[in-house]
Amino acid sequence: MVFKKMLRALGVGGPTVDTVLTESRVYPGGEIVGEVRMTGGEHPSDIDYIALSLVTRVERSGAAVVEFDRAVVSGRFPLGAGQSTVVPFRLPVPWEAPVTEVFGHQLHGMGLGLRTELAVAKAVDKGDLDALHIVPLPSQAAVLEAFARLGFHFRSADLEHGRIHGVDQRLPFFQEIEFHPPRELARGISQVELTFVTDPAGMAVVLEADRRPGMFSSGGDAFGRFHVSHEEAERTDWAGLISQWLGEVSSRRPSNGFHGGGHHGGHRGGGGMGMVGGVAAGLVGGMVLGEVFEEVGESFFGDEG
């Protein structure tokens, strides 16, 4: 895929740059591979540096574009008039990078881009924001597939500034993926939010259910947190686990698995998990997930896709 940028800050007749990606769809913890192709303008130029950065929109007190990863891929070099040069690069994708595409659908409300920054003679041009798609790891996909199987419908997704209590979080924001509950749960729950905080060893799966007020209750939020390795996540019966927890939350019975918590550090907290690794019923492999995605994508997203 080729993204062409005319360098606005350098004026008419300045260099042009094409950022060429081998693949625009990548996994958290994977790599962005490509090359920056430059062509000199009408006059020779001294390139001070080329940098690539990952940027996205984060909700704070209003939405703001945040750069959350950056790498200088080239230092100073001369570029002659009309001369062409290529700078190859390999950039690691942060493990906590937010998912932007599920079941082949772009998540409504999510956008993430690779930005090329070029400095020439002390003039810096940050180019355009070009789309990069982050697809779920198999461990994350197993959880998302369970929500689809349980009859949940995707509502929206966004990034919230802050940190989650009790989770080793590296980025200054976290993703919330919001779902409408199925009919049998809608009387007690208005929506469920899912957050992944992922690292090389595994991930924290954080849930927040918004409970509707009842005859003897004012409603409120229920929180759950589950820590699991990537291998365990693919073997876990997430549909059964989530269904049990949500049934307890909607009926306001004490939970035997996910434990509630309160807001802390800008977001939700929670206790330890009773149902930890070893909850395994039905292996969900990559090929099976691929088939499931095709089946559930339309009903999962409805008109949101």
Rank of each mutant, 00 (worst) to 15 (best):
R8Y: 10
D18E: 14
T19A: 01
T19R: 10
T19G: 00
V20M: 03
S24Q: 08
Y27R: 13
R37D: 00
R37T: 05
G41N: 03
G41L: 00
H43V: 11
P44Q: 09
A51I: 03
L52D: 05
G62W: 01
V66A: 05
A71E: 14
R76E: 15
R90I: 07
L91D: 10
L91T: 08
P92V: 03
P92Y: 11
V93Q: 14
V93W: 06
E96D: 09
E96P: 04
P98F: 07
T100L: 04
L112P: 03
R115V: 15
E117F: 03
E117G: 13
V120I: 10
V120C: 07
K126T: 13
G127F: 02
A131W: 01
H133N: 04
P138F: 00
S139W: 03
Q140F: 03
A142D: 02
V143C: 02
A146I: 05
R149L: 07
F152K: 00
R155T: 01
S156D: 14
D158S: 12
L159Q: 07
H161Q: 14
V167Q: 08
D168R: 09
F173N: 11
Q175S: 12
L194W: 09
F196L: 11
T198S: 15
M203Y: 05
A204D: 15
L207M: 15
G219H: 04
G220R: 09
S229G: 14
H230E: 06
E231G: 09
A233Y: 05
A233R: 11
E234M: 15
E234H: 01
R235T: 12
G240L: 04
G240P: 14
W245T: 14
W245A: 11
W245R: 01
G247S: 12
E248A: 13
V249F: 02
S250A: 15
S255L: 05
F258H: 02
H259P: 05
G260P: 02
G261V: 14
H264M: 11
G265D: 04
R268Y: 07
G269T: 07
M275A: 06
M275Y: 10
V276Y: 02
G278M: 08
L283I: 10
V284K: 06
V284M: 11
V288G: 07
V292N: 08
E294A: 09
E295F: 12
E295Q: 15
F301M: 06
G302D: 07
E304F: 05
G305A: 15
